Amino acid sequence: MPTPDFIVELRRHVGQSLLWLPGVAAVVLRPHPVSGADEVLLVRRADTGSWTVVTGILDPGEEPAVGAVREVLEETCVVVRADRLVWAHSTPEIEFVNGDRSTFLSLCFRCSWVSGDPRPGDDESSDAGWFRLEALPKMAESQLRRIELAVANAPEAVFAR
């Protein structure tokens, strides 16, 4: 479901006012079965047609790494393991087509593929697949930054100071 029930309920009270929401991004990596080179799992958003890493909103009280793993399974039918946090940041304000406004605390995780072949698992995505790092589709800079940080796998997470 694109909008979680708890947000629909909040919107009944606050209308289209700006909401601050906790979100996750999952950069799922695996070695290519033949070449061994890293590949990244991407989804094509059904609403915009954009290619992105898997993103989603945390449920109330949900642990962030658990939420990242859940979102990947729901959106791509792929089982992953969340390995580490690579980036914590806030997004610019987003105004959706219906006029709702949100900004997100985005927690980006480097994840490892465990099993499954990607396919759209819900109506949020129209496509899902593995992409070689040197052959990524056109993507927003923020998506490329998420991938860059996950691939770099630095010992510490990045955050604004």
Rank of each mutant, 00 (worst) to 15 (best):
V86W: 05
V86D: 04
V86A: 06
W87F: 12
A88S: 14
A88G: 08
A88Q: 13
H89T: 15
H89V: 14
S90H: 15
S90F: 15
S90W: 15
S90C: 15
T91H: 13
T91S: 15
P92R: 06
P92K: 04
I94S: 09
I94C: 04
E95H: 06
E95G: 09
F96Y: 14
F96H: 13
V97Q: 14
N98F: 02
N98L: 08
N98I: 03
G99P: 02
D100I: 01
R101K: 14
R101L: 07
S102H: 05
T103Q: 13
T103C: 11
F104T: 07
F104L: 14
L105K: 06
L105S: 10
S106A: 11
S106L: 13
C108K: 07
C111S: 04
W113C: 01
W113M: 00
V114R: 11
V114E: 13
V114H: 04
V114D: 07
S115G: 09
S115D: 14
G116M: 02
D117N: 11
R119K: 11
R119Y: 02
G121I: 03
D122H: 08
D122E: 05
D122A: 07
D123T: 11
E124S: 07
S125G: 04
S126H: 06
A128Q: 01
A128I: 03
A128K: 02
G129Y: 07
W130I: 08
W130C: 10
L133W: 05
